[in-house]
């Protein structure tokens, strides 16, 4: 069930360089949102909505948290919305992460940059199910880092920056060997990172969340498609995804 509705901005703040955390309120959308889903947000009079993943969801308070990076005219305008204003939102959209893993198993969360947010709601949900969480978060540099403490509350957390200005230097794939045994991985981040990661963890059970420029966000316009492994057909990122099994699609 998808709803087009107003969401009230409960709070908005800058949590890292060009990175905004916004808490939105809507009973229906927060009530059914699952980790990995996204909101399609109308910003001003822009022709296309902006797809932004759900970073957290509080079903008691009817709140959803989104995190986004200012990366163009749409997100720049969205960053200027104030507490108390309303956003026109279509959501929750897409198929989220599978969270029915076995209790006591260990999962590895690997996030890159603005791909980090959906992993937080996922990690919280998995932890509530008794699953052990280990997280690797990659950022460009120190002033881009966010949610380190939040992830540490879920379990052991490694921070990696490209230039080594914070945490480990290098890429998320460089520290995977240090994390020990895990049963399954979940990842979201830039395509080059996901390519390197799925290659390194070939054969391992994993799920990846993808982003792409979208039109309708509901599967009708065929803008955000991705070839399947066998090359004979496509998956729609907005409707069939954004979460896919790592082996299911070609990056």
């Amino acid at each position: 069930m998808i709803k087009k509705d107003k969401m009230k901005i409960v709070s908005t703040r800058c949590i890292a360089k060009d990175t905004i955390e916004m808490v939105l309120e809507n009973q229906f959308i927060s009530g059914i949102a699952v980790p990995g889903q996204f909101l399609h947000i109308q910003v001003g009079k822009h022709i296309l909505r902006r797809p932004i993943s759900i970073a957290d969801c509080n079903k008691e308070l009817n709140q959803i948290t989104i995190l986004f990076k200012i990366n163009g005219v749409g997100t720049d305008e969205l960053a200027n919305y104030q507490q108390g204003e309303y956003l026109d939102v279509l959501g929750p959209l897409g198929n989220g992460f599978t969270t029915d893993g076995e209790s006591k198993s260990t999962v590895l969360l690997i996030g890159g940059g603005i791909g980090v947010p959906p992993l937080y709601y996922l990690g919280k949900t998995l932890k509530e199910n008794g699953i052990n969480i280990v997280t690797i978060l990659g950022f460009q540099q120190k002033d881009n880092v966010f949610y380190e403490q939040q992830f540490q509350e879920l379990g052991e957390t490694f921070i990696v920056t490209d230039n080594g200005s914070y945490g480990h230097k290098g890429f998320v794939t460089d520290v995977i060997d240090q994390v020990g045994r895990f049963d399954c991985y979940y990842s979201c981040g830039p395509i080059p990172m996901l390519k390197a990661l799925t290659a390194k963890l070939k054969g391992k059970k994993g799920f990846i969340s993808l982003e792409e420029r979208m039109g309708c966000g509901i599967g009708a316009c065929f803008a955000c498609v991705l070839p399947t492994k066998d090359g004979t057909s496509y998956k729609k990122i907005c409707k069939d995804g954004p979460v896919f099994q790592a082996e299911e699609v070609t990056l």
Binding site: L48, C221, F222, A223, C224, L226, Y234
Partner: peptide, 23 residues
Amino acid sequence: RIGNPTPRVAETASGMLNAIGLQ
């Protein structure tokens, strides 16, 4: 038809460009 590679859409001032490719 499987259509064109992505990105297939882009917003413009008061409009959008698309090149889906008859998928």
